[in-house]
Design a protein around this nucleic acid. Sequence first.
RNA 1: GCCCCCGUAGCUCAGUGGAUAGAGCGCAGGCCUCCGAAGCCUGAAGCAGCGGUUCGAGUCCGCUCGGGGGUACCA
Length: 560
Amino acid sequence: MTTPTRDRVAAVLRHALAGAAAANGWSGTDAVPVEVEVPKDPAHGDYATSVALRLAKPLRRSPREIAAAIAAHVPREAPVASVEVAGGGFVNVRLDDAWLRAQVLEIAREADAYGRSERLAGTRIQVEFISANPTGPLTVANARGGPLGDVLANVLAFAGADVEREYYVEDRTAQVKRFGISLAVRYRQLFGERIDLPLDGYQGDYVGDIAARIKELHGGRFRDLSLEDQGAAFVPMAMDWMVADAQRVTAKLGIRFDSWFRQSSFIESGYLARTIDALRRKGVVVERDGVVFFETPEAVALRREGDEGWVLVDAAGEAKYLATDIAYHRLCLEERGVDLKLDVWGANTQYHVAQMKLVLPLLGIDAARFEVLLYQYVRFLKEGVLTRMGRRTGQFLLLEDVLDAVGADVARFFLLQRGADAPLDFDFELAVQHSNDNPVYYVQYAHARIASIFRTAAERGVAPDGGDVRLLVAPAERDLIRLCLRLPELLDEIVAHRGVHLLTVYALELAGAFHGFYRDHRVVSDDAALSKARLGLVRAVQVTLRQTLGLLGVSAPESM
RNA sequence: GCCCCCGUAGCUCAGUGGAUAGAGCGCAGGCCUCCGAAGCCUGAAGCAGCGGUUCGAGUCCGCUCGGGGGUACCA
């Protein structure tokens, strides 16, 4: 349980502003939030606020005057050592060194709890991610949402939320039917029949492999069925195998889902039909030529050129994606007790998200309970050419091949280094070639080095506990402590903005600060007292690094 | 055409509206009688363009030019 230092400072500054306002008869200071940031230039202190600059206009006072008044009302007591007005009206705060040093012991004491909070306690959040079409093996494109969703789930749980990881298995779609037909064609070919894959069939070699597996298990038992019946017979088997395969490969990526929820379950239970009925009763459904549309003035307004309407059920009676997804989300949010459903989806669902945002409130579901983290797509380099991944076309890069080549740590770290909004190009050859100088090793090396320091200390009989932190007076030591204290602040930011990739940035920064410290300062030396103090500091860094890597789902090795 | 995302160093990418824009790789050079050189230090090199909002813009808004995605009775 950790209160971010920035929150403490912000509270002090808010209080000071209130005091300054009371003393000077200012009103309306509440309208401007006291935002506290970490200045880039250490000369500007540990924390700074620009609230005086923002208040200048409404108060019709100079920023420096306001800043001075705030500064005058800040009590010089821990954690604050000094306050100064700088620049055009910044209030810069410097933390008390003794307080700062004491945090070293605090972090070590908190250990596995360091960075945790109760911010989201009592909130049940479902994070749904990957959820790839069960029509083939997972690709690198599918994988992008993996670390993103998994780490987001980690961070939310760390903040006290009751988190469940869900993989939605869409096993009743038109694509799945198409996949079944492709299996049937390959099955027939195994018996020498001359038949070609339909144009919209699945081209990948794995389709033939599955057909061969069916033949091996069942021989010619299905030979007399029609193509459609063969497809229908093969799909359930194939779905089980695809899910098992996805479970195996996501486990390799270090992800464990709490549920593998099948679309067929709520179609068979009648929940889908009941949901469509519920929409009918709301008067937002119309039928034309046997096709069931969702239609409201808002929906019509959203439509783009060529958009005939939002189809719920086609003329053949097949429910479409919009319908099943409405039912699925309603099920999660209304029946399964989820407070917030947070979907991690590819950028191509952008229009669908807008549709969902419009439909769900009509079913009495607050749109704020449905949130989507969109990530841009992955392209991969095939023989030096950028290619869009598509399973149906057979153009893809298997996630498992990447994992086998570079390992889960490297793959996760790589995928988490860029923000979800940025497109991602993946050069397999380059990834393999560069895996040895991957940034993840830089971070892990820092952790292993620390472990090594403790081994050295043990060999030399230096007990790591009970050091006097007052001996930590070097600037590099102070910087390290401050950086460790940034973790809880960063986690708050990620909870607020979902930017999980910031954790990798932070890990690199902390590792870098440690490597620099290590070069200039000997931890285990002839000076026993200083050695013990520095071991305490190094312990705090180790704890922080371990917490960060743990949230990233990347291993923290003792040696490498 | 319309909608969404992106354009930062040679390459891949970070950068909650703040005070001197960062990292890795690559390139040039240097550092192990001493806790791990998977490390450290030094150097060259950058916000696509034009306007606007703001005390302050890489960050927000508009336009232009590039790149990606969507625009299905696919998901």
